[in-house]
Simulated assay, not measured.
Amino acid sequence: MSAVLDPALLAKLVCPVTRTPLRWDAERRELLSEAAGLAFPVRDGVPVLVVREARSING
């Protein structure tokens, strides 16, 4: 799996909870929503923007 997410795709993705932009964390291969405090996984290059699949980043 690539450690780089397509910038065009990233520009279109928003958090499903807050509708704010997501930030790519290449080290963990996750999309971060700092506004919601959630990290969404990317599996086989596909972002999984399902809240129950996200992990909390606030502790």
Results as ranks from 00 to 15, higher is better:
Arg55Thr: 10
Leu49Ser: 03
Ile57Glu: 10
Arg52Lys: 09
Lys12Gln: 15
Pro47Leu: 04
Thr18Ile: 06
Cys15Trp: 03
Lys12Ala: 14
Val50His: 10
Phe40His: 00
Phe40Pro: 04
Ser56Val: 14
Leu5Asp: 02
Val48Glu: 14
Asp6Arg: 10
Glu34Ile: 06
Leu32Ile: 00
Glu30Val: 08
Met1Leu: 14
Gly59Glu: 15
Arg19Asp: 12
Ala54Asp: 04
Leu38Val: 00
Gly37Lys: 03
Arg28Trp: 07
Val17Cys: 09
Leu10Arg: 05
Lys12Tyr: 11
Val42Ser: 04
Leu9Cys: 05
Arg55Gln: 12
Leu31Ile: 03
Trp24Tyr: 07
Leu31Pro: 06
Ala26Arg: 12
Lys12His: 13
Leu49Arg: 01
Arg28Pro: 06
Glu30Leu: 11
Val14Arg: 10
Val14Asp: 08
Pro41Val: 06
Val50Phe: 12
Arg55Gly: 10
Arg29Ser: 12
Arg28Ser: 12
Gly45Asp: 01
Leu13Arg: 01
Pro16Lys: 00
Thr18Asn: 08
Val4Glu: 09
Met1Asn: 13
Gly37Val: 00
Arg29Gln: 15
Val14Met: 09
Asp25Tyr: 04
Gly45Lys: 02
Pro47Thr: 01
Arg19Phe: 13
Gly45Arg: 04
Val42Leu: 06
Arg19Gln: 15
Glu27Asn: 11
Ala3Phe: 13
Lys12Cys: 14
Ser56Ala: 13
Arg23Gln: 15
Ser33Arg: 02
Trp24Met: 04
Leu10Pro: 07
Arg55Phe: 09
Arg23Cys: 13
Leu10Trp: 04
Ala35Glu: 10
Asn58Arg: 15
Arg55Ala: 10
Trp24Cys: 05
Leu32Ala: 00
Arg55Cys: 10
Pro47Tyr: 01
Arg19Ala: 15
Ala26Gln: 09
Leu32Gly: 01
Gly37Gln: 00
Thr20Glu: 14
Leu9Asp: 07
Cys15Asn: 02
Arg28Lys: 15
Arg52Trp: 10
Leu5Val: 09
Ser56His: 11
Arg52Thr: 13
Asp25Leu: 05
Ala39Lys: 03
Ser2Ile: 09
Asp44Val: 05
Asp25Met: 00
Glu27Thr: 12
